[in-house]
Design a binder for these strands. Structure first.
Lengths: 241, 241
DNA sequence: CGTAATCTTGACCAACGTCAATGTTCGTGG
DNA sequence: CCACGAACATTGACGTTGGTCAAGATTACG
């Protein structure tokens, strides 16, 4: 797969790049990596100098505590990049694992200083994307700190639906969702059983349903109001590596 | 206050810059802003194009929900910069308020693209700092999602102590801490009363105490072990704007 | 068609929230 | 230096939310 022919880059959501920029990223590319569901590609404490752009499938960025419990920090969707902390800070504080069968573009992170030098515009576009993700993280922290079970679950899932919609991977209130109960639980800070109770509540209120690996949101605006989610804060284009 | 004479920049923790870089930042500087305790300098939804570097005092970055409850997203200490989301994304999703009497360097954020162009090294150093903060945020999310009351409070406070220590503003297990019970509660996702109970537990275990606006940590390593905090992941120098 | 994974349910328990009364600290003005 | 008030901390009683356990139902997949 050549970067210049990458179909992911053509999607609406992503920042249009000059041929020169795409070529520069193409030169960073090392390999296209296929990964089986459940397998880790980045491990906490690792020192890798690679950047991974998720090309296809879903992945989870997570942190594991001494007692074995897991906090999911973010769900990665096609076009999302991980590995920057390891490249920039020398060590990764989180693991990343494929949730489904997935494939990644693997880039050489050591070229990053050169990229900053040769294309400040691209560096700035990337920075914008990072800050957009940071803002998403802030809102998720608010969810963890201040919401009850049903709101947390609803917020977490509507956010994912919205991100998929922006990528053209969901519409009409339906999207694929390979997350299991335990994954949702580990993301929103609840037990699996209680997540199931919250999902039942949301289903009874006709705010949200899950069916055979699909997420169903009958009325986006109503769920958004219930969870305090604002698709608002208009999403700019995302820079993709 | 000239940037070239700024005593903050001289502290160990901060990235040494070339005279040229300092001069460039100096040219971005608009004013030195004094703020009374409790006053907001950035408001959620605002469109300001200013960057604020906290010079003296403490500040809080927070998000307020419809029901009036507040989630504190981060505590800002001298040398920390805020306002980037507003500059880069056009709108701020959080507010920032002075916790104590404080002063800020106000910079013109519109110059940022120029800064990226003229000094890619500085841009990269800033990016490193942003990712270090992002990692801190990830760990705080883990705290919110997976820890019990005493661990949350201990984690939150030891992190602050550690950041102050890095800045040379705390040592020997004692540091100033103007945070009130309600501030801790709003940061760790608990009620004020329950935070007080957790503090009592920590005091009984001789892990942590508060006394007249001071934080006392008799045995850093023991509290770190209790809360799962790792000062580890060695802190690089921080770039300061 | 059978097995493993996941979901569902109910009973019970622990953690945390809420309320309200009391105590303490700190800043202010006399 | 003292008296006062406001803000903040402390405590106990009690209610609510979410966790845990375990058994049974359903679904996915070979």
């Amino acid at each position: 797969m050549r970067c210049s022919e990458c179909p992911l880059r053509r999607r609406q959501l992503f920042h249009a790049m000059s041929a020169r920029e795409v070529a520069m990223i193409g030169r960073m590319k090392r390999e296209h990596l296929g990964v089986a569901a459940g397998k880790d590609i980045i491990r906490e404490g690792g020192h890798g100098q690679e950047l991974y752009t998720l090309y296809e499938g879903w992945a989870l960025r997570y942190h594991r505590l001494q007692d074995g419990s897991r906090q999911i920090l973010d769900v990665l969707l096609p076009g999302d990049t991980v590995g920057m902390t390891s490249v920039l800070l020398g060590q990764s504080a989180h693991s990343v694992q494929a949730l489904t069968t997935a494939s990644f573009c693997v880039l050489d992170g050591r070229v990053l200083p050169e990229l900053f030098k040769k294309s400040p515009e691209l560096a700035l576009a990337l920075t914008r994307t990072w800050f957009a993700d940071l803002r998403r993280g802030d809102l998720r922290a608010t969810m963890l700190g201040r919401m009850n079970a049903a709101e947390r679950v609803g917020y977490f899932l509507i956010e994912i639906y919205d991100r998929l919609r922006q990528r053209g991977m969901a519409r009409g209130g339906v999207s694929p969702c390979p997350l299991r109960g335990i994954d949702v639980a580990d993301a929103v800070g609840l037990s699996r059983v209680h997540v199931m109770r919250a999902l039942k509540e949301l289903r009874n209120e006709e705010l949200l349903d899950r069916e055979r690996g699909n997420l169903i949101i009958p009325d986006f605006a109503r769920l958004a109001a219930f969870t305090g989610y604002s698709s608002g804060l208009r999403v700019g284009k995302r820079a993709i590596l």
